[in-house]
Design a binder for these strands. Structure first.
Length: 478
RNA sequence: GGCUCUAUCGUCUAACGGUUAGGACGAAUCCUUCUCAAGGAUUAAAUCGCGGUUCGAUUCCGCGUAGAGUCACCA
């Protein structure tokens, strides 16, 4: 058995679809656990669909999330964005000549032919077939055409007229399709570029791909690919068709029903490790009940045999949970760096303090921006909010005055949660008050909110001056 | 419509043909508590239907049903 080699072969549509990311991840995991390599190949043979900046976006997302591809003999070394040790992805658009040569070989061996049918004729044909309720298929008019025509032409695959294609999918088992279901697929388009099917098969063979791990949407066209392998006389790779990632309504995961771009999640401040962990578990599960896995552990534990057959709904709620778990593992310092872009106004020290109180209350880092506004500007609040539900106005006023008086005695250097808490606690005991009489108004005074972290946490972030100012204000409005 | 794939709690999923069908997310309740969050405890929640094979079927087979994917000079 030759060395394992897998590939991720996206077409550059502008962003990395989360389903595409899972495909890439599984390819990566499988290659690495077998000591093999993982290559990236950009399938950009459709000149009409070129999206500028798409390749760079794709690569930058892959790099941000930490999936690195290996170099290969066909790597394009001129590609700028690559880093040390990575010789860049393959670009099919730069290999058009290779595909044409291979298509010609197929024609020479009578496995393909030149077709000069016009778009109009094909359109006409389709309409007739539809009217007769027949499946739309090329009628084979040019089937015997082995001479290269003058002018525009395409090259089509000459699908056998009888028999069936049988292959084994390592996730789904044996799959059988009659050749009658397979159309004489265009291999080389009239612009000289290959279609997906040809380029894919030629590259997978030339690059020595041993395992083709891709989305289930490719299952119906796999027989065409097998016919191509057979036409060339090449050995088949192992095929594994992954179940689809689904919207809530069980249709194929798409835009319009939430974020499907991996970078959207990255931009919102979901951690790469959380995304990797969650996505890995969408369609795969280890033998036991463990759920928290880092990339390295996944490489060790992943098992293609345990990949699910049915599609999986992408549920943000569970992603949130994973993200919270990984957020908790980060130090305040690390989080402060990551949160910087969401709170550009705050300095390093403040950021660390904010992160400390908010990190357990957010699902993803972007939320910290909205959530922590009260640190910078005291929101307007109704004076009634200052009074705890089990308290009254007089007690609250008395309490606030006591808070101001007692906290004022605390030196700036000791303005920490621990000491602040102790003072407030002693105030409660010493004055025969309830916790709600003291902590609630203190909290509302400094946050202006009905729901917030505890008063002492907030005060530590605000500092003595600002905290006392806010308490003073509460006394004046009540 | 043809072809192909798929089917366990709301969601992700576990279960050599033998389990009180397990875990996680989410939900609910309670505890803790100044509120929120976190934490702790508890609860509800599933084998698509019908046949067959078998002592025994979530598991194997058939038929149905439902859902999805795919039928391009897009990938």
């Amino acid at each position: 058995m030759s060395r394992v080699k897998t590939r991720f072969a996206p077409s550059p549509t502008g962003y990395l679809h989360i389903g595409g990311f899972r495909t890439a991840l599984y390819n990566y995991l499988f290659a690495k656990q077998n000591g093999g390599s993982f290559v990236l190949r950009i399938e950009d043979t459709d000149q009409t669909r070129e999206v500028k900046g798409a390749v760079e976006a794709l690569i930058s997302t892959l790099q941000k999330i930490g999936l690195n591809w290996d170099e290969g003999p066909f790597a394009d070394k001129t590609f700028k964005m690559t880093e040390k040790g990575q010789n860049g992805p393959y670009f099919q658009s730069k290999r058009a000549k290779i595909y044409r040569e291979y298509a010609q070989k197929l024609v020479s061996s009578n496995k393909a032919y030149f077709c000069t049918c016009s778009a109009e004729r094909l359109e006409q044909l389709r309409k007739e077939q539809e009217a007769k309720k027949l499946p739309p298929k090329y009628d084979g008019l040019c089937r015997e055409n082995t001479q290269k025509p003058i002018g525009k032409f395409v090259i089509r695959l000459k699908v056998p007229t009888s028999g069936e294609v049988v292959f084994n999918d390592s996730i789904r088992g044996e799959i059988k399709i009659s050749v009658n279901e397979i159309d004489d697929q265009v291999l080389i388009k009239s612009d000289g570029f290959p279609t997906y099917h040809l380029a894919n098969v030629v590259d997978d063979h030339l690059m020595g791909i041993t395992h083709v791990i891709r989305g289930e949407e490719w299952l119906p066209s796999t027989p065409k690919h097998i016919l191509l392998y057979q036409g060339f006389g090449w050995n088949l790779p192992v095929f594994a068709h992954l179940p689809l990632l689904l919207n809530k309504d069980r249709s194929k995961l798409s835009k319009r029903q939430g974020d499907v771009a991996t970078e959207d999640y990255l931009n919102k401040g979901y951690l790469p490790e959380a995304i990797i962990n969650y996505v890995a578990l969408l369609g795969w599960h280890p033998k036991d009940d463990r759920e928290l896995f880092g990339l390295k552990q996944l490489v060790k534990e992943f098992d293609l045999k345990r990949v699910q057959k049915a599609g999986a709904i992408f549920d943000v709620e569970k992603l949130n949970w994973f993200n919270c778990e990984y957020l908790k593992k980060k130090s305040n310092k690390e989080l402060a760096i990551l949160a910087k872009r969401f709170l550009p106004r705050a300095d390093e020290a403040t950021l660390q303090k904010i992160v400390k109180v908010e990190k357990e209350r957010i699902n993803y880092l972007e939320e910290i921006c909205e959530r922590s506004q009260y640190f910078f500007n005291l929101p307007n609040y109704k004076q009634e909010l200052l009074v705890f539900k089990k308290s009254d106005k007089e007690t609250t006023l008395k309490s606030l005055k006591l808070i101001l008086e007692n906290l004022n005695k605390l030196r700036e250097g000791k303005w920490k949660v621990k000491h602040l808490h102790k003072i407030l606690e002693q105030m409660v005991k010493g004055n025969n008050l309830a916790n709600g009489d003291v902590f609630w108004p203190a909290r509302v005074a400094v946050s202006g909110l009905a729901k917030s972290p505890s008063p002492e946490e907030i005060m530590e972030v605000l500092g003595k001056t600002e905290s006392l100012k806010r308490i003073q204000k509460a006394i004046s409005v009540i």
